[in-house]
Design a protein around this nucleic acid. Structure first.
Lengths: 191, 191
DNA sequence: GCTTTGTGATTGAACGTTCATTCAGTCCGA
DNA sequence: TCGGACTGAATGAACGTTCAATCACAAAGC
């Protein structure tokens, strides 16, 4: 029971690292297996095929993001503070888990992210949706569609993390500019 | 001379359509060739290999976006109007050229978009950079790094186009919400 | 306590397919 | 007649997937 879940996680983690470095197609099943310390065939005990391995990773990552952000949310704060917290936690998560970030960012814009996947319930998106819906109910943010809001905010966090990653040296001194973006978005959505 | 360029364009266009529909790896060279009405080998007259075909497409798309947006810019307007124009034109371009959009969005987050590519001069990014730099010089937008500004704005346009595409039915009545985003960003960056 | 049997995970070589790339031969315009 | 573009069958490497064999271990039987 226990080691089975461990092994599945191990396979996912191994694929995650390879995909972040080489992209979906720079990571053959054989390499994932080697990296995870199992035989190629073993992967097919846990996943039907390579595609469902990738979907599995996506669901795993979404779950991890949600856990990280949700458990650091504090409903007793003002919604403004909760928003900044959300922003910071999401950023932190990506920076602590670069391979999760690399995977997620690629996945969202890939053809794996089919309509079917998009309309499946998803731990992280559901959380984000509920979060912004609450903000609206509390009367603290504008009555925009919560789906639009969550995509908007998540996209901007993503792109800031990407900027930090790609322009590390050039922007070292003025990361402040990037933090400005969160104020910009908050000012835009608050009532 | 003439038909050579035509053929190259034709190959690029053919690959563009296939990639948008099936992703980078759902488009074998043989299929690109068939779609373009040439033999597989011919592609290697114009591109060294498949990777450089993809880089070639990227450069082509960047050039097309720049052309579209640049030739509709009007320096005699207020910078605010120019900003809204920029926003609208970029959105229009993507909607008129869904396969360019599909390709570009995938490419940006793929491992093809290496550090090397990012630091190569690029018609579209250079234009966007110069555009926002001018806004700063005119004192109409905040003194943020123009690179950050252009990535920020382009990312948000991208994600709005994606929302429109994916949630066409659900949001049909209230596309207004999406237009709100441009005001939100403008209010955030203006001085 | 020891052996047998059953179950299901694990292995990795082998298979068949797909695909990028090559190249000998052909075509065509100058 | 020459030179470069073009063709598309051939090549061979890479890869996802399968499966017969092996292993680990627990339950059953003695």
């Amino acid at each position: 029971m226990h080691s089975l879940l461990d092994k599945k996680k191990c396979i996912i983690q191994s694929a995650l690292d390879l995909i972040q470095e080489h992209g979906f197609h720079g990571c053959p099943v054989s390499m994932v297996a080697k990296n995870a310390g199992v035989a190629a065939g073993t992967i097919y005990t846990y996943f039907e095929n390579k595609d469902s391995l990738i979907i599995g990773i996506y669901e795993y990552v979404a779950e991890e993001i949600k856990k990280y952000v949700a458990e650091r949310d504090d409903a007793s704060l003002t919604f403004k503070d909760r928003f900044y917290n959300y922003w910071k936690n999401l950023t932190d998560f990506y920076e602590l888990n670069p391979s999760a970030y690399g995977f997620y960012d690629q996945f969202l814009n890939s053809p794996f992210n089919s309509e079917e996947i998009q309309h499946k319930p998803n731990a992280w998106l559901d959380f984000a949706y509920a979060f912004f819906e609450e903000g609206i109910k509390l009367g603290e943010i504008k009555e925009l569609n919560p789906i639009v809001l969550s995509i908007l905010v998540n996209t901007n966090v993503n792109s800031i993390v990407r900027i930090k990653k790609n322009f590390k040296k050039k922007l070292a001194r003025n990361n402040m500019e990037l933090d400005e973006i969160s104020h910009l978005i908050w000012d835009g959505i608050k009532t």
